[in-house]
Each structure stands twice: as C-alpha cells, then as structure tokens.
Design a protein around this nucleic acid. Structure first.
Length: 420
RNA sequence: GUGGGCGUAGCUCAACUGGUUAGAGCACUGGAUUGUGGCUCCAGUGGUUGGCGGUUCAAGUCCGCUCGCUCACCCCA
C-alpha cells in the first residue's frame, strides 16, 4: 500500500512545535491589543483577479507563484499568496471607510506560493501582519515599525536589523523610471537576461539584482531616494526623525525595492543573519494608491507582515508545558470504575486529569504519570477500596497518604488551587 | 524554472578497498521490584538500506534511471 505524504513545501506542525507556535501567537495578540489593532480573518480562497489587480500582473507572485485553478467553466480562483490585498478587499466590500476613519486590522494565517521550497520558504507558510488604513501620517509609519520591533522583542528575538527606504509616490516613480530608462538605453546588452526582461516589465527591480555586472551598472546610478519630490522627501525625513526619537535603530538601504507593486513611499525590511538565504523576518511599507486602485476612494495606508516559520526558527521563547494535575493509577475493574467517574468529574471542573486506557501495570502507569509531569497520582485497587480509602501521592515531594473515599472528591478539588 | 548535496530503525548516526544473519545510542515496551515514577541494570519490539533495473559468485557499498528531501539561484515573510 502506498503511503501518502504531504505535498512538497507543505508541512505538518506537530504538537511539540505547536506549543511554541501558540506562545508566539499569544504574544503577538497581546502586542496588537496594546497598539489598538483588531483581528480580521479573510478566506484562504479568493478571486484570482484580486491579486493581479493589487500585487501586480507582472510580479513573480502573480505571474508564477499562485496556486490558482478554475471553478466551474470560467471562474479563476486562487489560494491567497499574501495578506494585504484580501484585507483591503474586505475593507472595501464592507464599506468600512464609511463607518470609521482610521482602521487598524491584524491577521494571522496561512499563505500559499508555488515556489521551490528551501530554508525559510515553504509553499504553505504562515504570516502575521497588520494594516492601518486611512492616514498618511508619518507617525503611523513609525507606529507600524515600532510595533514590529516590539512584537519581536515580545517573542524573544533579537539580533535583527531594520532596513528602511522610500520609493516615493507615483509621480516620483514615474519620473525616476524615466531617468533610469534613459541611463540604461545604451547598456541594455550588458544586463543579465532577467534584467533585460525587467527593463520592460518591472524596471525598478533591476536595482536589487544580485548579478555582479548588473550591480556594477546600477551602482553608478543614484537610487530613487535621491529623486523624491519635496513632499515625499519631507515625509521620509519625518519618519526617520520619529523613529530615532522613539529609540529605533535602523539603516537606510536605498536598494530595497519591494516585490509587490502596491508599495509607495516608506518601505522596510527586518532582516536576520541566522535565517540563511531567506533572511527577511518581516517586510512592509506604505501603499497610498492601492485602495483607490482597487476601486475605493483614495485612502493612504501602511502595513507589514511577519514570517511565522522564520520567527519560530530564531525565537528563544521557551514556553512551559502546563503540568498535568492528577493522574489516576488504578488496578482492578472496581477501582477503575470509581476512578473514571472521579476523572470525569474533575475534568468538568477544569482540573486536568489523565487515566491509563491500555490496561497497564501500576509501574507503567506511574511511569506515564511521571512522563506527563503529573503533580499528583491517585492510586487505588481492591485493597484500598476494601478499606474505604484511596492513596494520594505527591509526585514532587515523593510522599503519599491515604484519604477516605467519601472525602476524596473534596480533597482532590482542594488540592489544585492551593498548589498551582 | 536552473544548479549542487544527501537518502540505512520513529530520531541521530555506524558498517575498512563490494564479502557471513545490516549495528549502536536515544525513544518505545517489558522485567529486575508478583502493587509505586525519575537513577541504574537486563531483555524485547522495530529495516523491502527511498524505488526500479543493471554489473558481479556476492551490492547498503559500483553504474543507470526514477522518486523524495535539502541547500542555493530567482523571489519573498
């Protein structure tokens, strides 16, 4: 019989991993609460047009990384490759802008991209992200970056670097593309094949090509940062100043060009050296034209997303497994029936309890209790029941005593709050 | 999509230039203690050596194909 396995790039998260995973999620939720962001959940499956319209027809994500397929004859749908477009879609669909001014949403969940898997890059991966829609205030840019910084601290991650850049508004970009195209006109043949293609489709991406020769050519051309219009220049200056004032260390990296088309002005990346080649822990920035582009009224916005697996890889958070309160080690059917009833009762009162289901010896029942880190073990067999008693063993103190059957329930219930 | 590396027990790894029945530690189960955990000792379960084919008296080992994993390019979180 052929044993089916997970698809490439799709992974099970086993319970042992899940403990830390949930701890990170819990910390993230706490941070979002503090910053006034509320959770939104959008479907995993969306109209494929949502992403070509927002992320960009010519981006790698849309061009070759979407899990997309037809439903019925002509409806093309896809598993979401990123989180911003669905949130904006929901924002518009429910006319949120008519009900309130600034909205601050966060999300967490699975994203899907059909790529060759490698370290820190899976086909199904999880992101935590947030979007703040409705303000162009540079203080909001700073809030997002400060929030990410805060979140990373909360999950015991350090040693990362914050890289910052501004790619200006649409006017700045149009102007810069014009200049760049002029500059490259007679150098096209020297570029790598990819960049020759980019020259037509996604000019700005040439700026962060890793090919040696392309870098050489680009190096002598000033970055877009040097060509920002007065307004964008002022906005970026303010973002930098605010960040410095609130104690954020960052470096300006004029070559950050995000791979999604919707970004404008402030863009940033949190990178970590221990992540390997996929070193971006978080990324984000402003997208002042996206809402309008998706059919809404113009609303400036800013957001970010964090890679969950990448956080898992470097977080030093050590979540403690909650210890089991009471284990029932029983011998004989009469004792088992009594113990099972007591177990059911304690559990319904919220006291974690466990019992053996495999008819094991007392010794192995205790071994199991020990492995489960049980605080107490109730031991009972014919011998005890005949005396009208049971044995209560304190596993840590390595002591045990007999208690009366009638008082057992009260004693067991009383044990826990005092101890934990 | 393009390269490189690697596939032996649930996990981490052994097995000299091809040579008896493929081993060890951890984990698991049982026992030493016929009813008491951790430590110790003993024993046991567990393998189509990823798969298929080839070379050979003989293949975990060599060759071919294939599948899978992994790292990197690309791109991104």
């Amino acid at each position: 019989m052929l044993r089916i396995k997970t698809l490439p790039g799709m992974e099970d998260i086993l319970p042992e991993q899940m403990v830390k995973w949930q701890a990170i999620e819990r910390k993230a939720r706490e941070v979002f609460l503090v910053y006034g962001y509320s959770e939104i959940r959008t479907p995993l499956l969306e109209d494929a047009m949502l992403f070509s319209q927002s992320v960009g027809e010519e981006t790698d994500i849309v061009k070759k990384q979407m899990f997309s397929f037809l439903i019925g004859k002509d409806k093309r749908v896809c598993l979401r490759p990123e989180g911003t477009a669905p949130v904006v879609r929901a924002y518009l669909q429910h006319s949120v802008f008519r009900r309130q001014g600034l909205v601050k949403y966060y999300y967490l969940g699975a994203m899907f991209r059909y790529e060759r898997p490698q370290k820190g890059r899976k086909r199904q991966f999880y992101q935590i992200g947030a979007e703040a829609i409705g303000s162009n205030s540079p203080y909001l840019d700073a809030e997002i970056i400060y929030l990410v910084n805060n979140l990373l601290q909360a999950v015991a991650i350090d040693g990362y670097q914050i890289r910052l850049n501004s790619i200006g508004c649409l006017d700045c970009q149009a102007n810069y593309k014009h200049l760049l195209r002029d500059y490259l006109r007679d150098k096209k043949d020297l570029l790598c094949p990819d960049c020759q293609c980019r020259a037509e489709t996604n000019l700005l991406r040439i700026l962060d090509c890793k090919n040696k020769q392309c870098r050489e050519i680009i190096r002598s051309f000033p970055p877009i940062l040097d060509y920002l219009c007065a307004k964008c220049k002022e906005h970026f200056a303010k973002v930098k100043r605010i960040l410095t004032e609130i104690g954020i260390n960052y470096v300006i990296d004029a070559h950050i060009v995000r791979g999604l088309d919707y970004y404008t002005n402030t863009v940033f990346e949190f990178i970590h050296p221990e992540l390997g080649s996929q070193n971006a822990l978080a990324g984000g920035g402003r997208y002042n034209n996206l809402i309008e582009q998706m059919g809404g009224e113009k609303q400036p916005a800013v957001g970010f997303s964090l890679g969950m697996e990448r956080m898992m890889a470097i977080s030093r958070l050590e979540p403690q497994v909650l210890p089991l309160h009471i284990f029932f080690a029983l011998m004989g059917e009469r004792a088992y029936d009594w113990g099972y009833k007591m177990l059911a009762h304690l559990r319904s009162k919220g006291i974690s309890s466990e019992i053996d289901y495999q008819n094991r010896s007392l010794k192995s029942q205790l071994r199991k209790a020990n492995r489960l880190k049980a605080k107490f073990v109730v031991i009972a067999g014919e011998k005890e029941l005949n005396k009208g008693k049971i044995i209560l063993r304190d596993m840590r103190k390595q002591e045990q005593r007999e208690i009366n059957l009638e008082k057992a329930e009260a004693e067991l219930c009383a044990l826990i709050p005092a101890d934990s």
